[in-house]
Amino acid sequence: MIPTETISPGHPRTDPTSGPPIITAEDLRVAFGRYVALDGVTLKFGPGAHGLLGPNGAGKSTLVKVLLGLVRPDSGSGDVLGHSIHGRQTDLRHRVGYMPERDAHVPGMLVIDYVSMMGRLSGLAKRPAEARAHEVLTYVGLSGERYRTVDSLSAGNRQRAKLATALVHDPDLLLLDEPTNGMDPVGRREMLRLIVELRRVGISMLVSTHLLPDVQEVCDGVAIMAKGRVLRTGSVASLTANIDRNWKLQIVGDLGPFLAALGARGVKVAHDETQGSLTAQLPEHAEPRLFIEAAASAGVGLKEMRLGTRTLEEAFFEVIGEAPHAHS
């Protein structure tokens, strides 16, 4: 049975800049011919789960590959788990689990062989690698598919198999490139639960995705990228905080006079007809008492009045400077 409640993090979210940094990047630049994929990327992440957000072509996958040593930057430097991205790449890859965006498997190979082989490539002996492969496949929910070939799996199960290969050697850091790609809503929810669970047991991770709800549900920190640049970094909480003085209001009575009263006091209002609520933005230097005065003058009752928050999506579009509908 698959629970349907909202995913909640297993522990209080950490400040992404606290603790010794596990990922640092300093002025990274990568160009493929005339196309600049990364343009002076600088960021720092501490332990925990971090999201790399951005539209397609933002440079997220390139940054992940640079951090793993798969793409050599033209300039700049970086460290992952204390290993320089310009240093011995095998030392770094030994401690990192990578889940690529693209399907990467040997056609015709059984799932169990595939995962076990990845364990052996990471230093495990044959028998322990096989035992570990069974263990992680059970963990990701693929125990019933162990003896099928990887290419015969559904898209969602292939994602799980990729996660199993990233986990088989028990890495300290997971680099997840679009982990919920191609998954149905149920599969996506399961994948996010696994990620939350992994963070709970102390595995740090960097989740590259264009799906904002994924990041909001599982990550502590986030870096928003567009056109090869990091536009903003910070905790998810700080990005979704109510910095615009938004309030959620619900009234009992006639809406028209109340809207007119708010308008007369310089309040910007958005009406959500499905929720039956109003989102009102206080003018600068105004006090929330203004809503009570407006309700009294309009002859309506104020049923609810609370500080609203922005969704990560709203914050994201604000940062990249585009309206949400442009990307919907």
Binding site: M117, S122, T138, Y139, V140, L167, D170
Partner: peptide
Amino acid sequence: PILEQVYRRLDHHEPASSWRAVWAIGDQ
């Protein structure tokens, strides 16, 4: 259900081994 499974961290990490990797590729 997958949610009843618990992720187990390894007691110790084996160092990367070229020979194990070579035999793994050779075998598979």
